[in-house]
């Protein structure tokens, strides 16, 4: 019998940006109303600035939808497994909606500049749910300093009771 048997299975973890960076935001839907006053800012944006904005981000698919009610911007995100807290917590109930991460923001009564700012926020977002990190630094790697050990301190400098 060999003195070791087998190996433990592993799956590689994404590190978006280590090789190439893929923008998590993949699609943005702008929903506006043709008559409502709350859509005025978005209507201005659609007629004046959308073309320029969309050309700047060719990797994002822009969709414009006409629907009654307040204007809405909806972002669809592809999520990295490592950066998603739902994966990190191994909560199987949260896993279902990981692949179609959606972020929705209401654009009611916003003027054209505010609409653009909200769109920039959608574009730059990771798509993850907002959560409070428990540590100041989150990393897949171990600490380069290692863990302090009292046994490796020189005997003369050890704490004596």
């Amino acid at each position: 019998m060999p003195p070791y048997n087998g190996a433990i299975k592993a799956v590689s973890v994404a590190r978006n940006g280590v090789g190439a960076f893929i923008r998590p935001c993949r699609k943005i839907t702008l929903q506006y109303c043709n008559v409502g006053g709350s859509s005025q800012g978005l209507r201005d944006f659609l007629t004046q600035r959308l073309t320029k904005f969309a050309t700047k981000y060719p990797e994002i698919e822009f969709q414009v939808a006409l629907k009654r009610g307040h204007p809405i911007v909806r972002g669809l995100y592809s999520t990295t497994m490592a950066s998603n807290p739902a994966i990190l917590t191994n909560d199987s109930t949260k896993l279902a909606d990981v692949h179609t991460n959606v972020k929705t923001v209401c654009l009611r009564n916003l003027n054209i500049d505010n609409v653009e700012n909200k769109l920039k926020l959608m574009v730059e977002s990771s798509g993850n749910r907002l959560y409070k990190p428990k540590q100041a630094v989150q990393s897949l790697n171990q600490s380069v300093r290692g863990i302090w050990s009292p046994f490796h301190v020189d005997k003369d400098h050890r704490f004596k009771i």
Binding site: P3, A7, I8, A10, S12, V13, R15, V18, G19
Partner: peptide, 16 residues
Amino acid sequence: LSRKVDVESMLKFEQP
């Protein structure tokens, strides 16, 4: 290849 695989944690020794 830019993805992370922790090879160290894959080793398993029965009688080291």
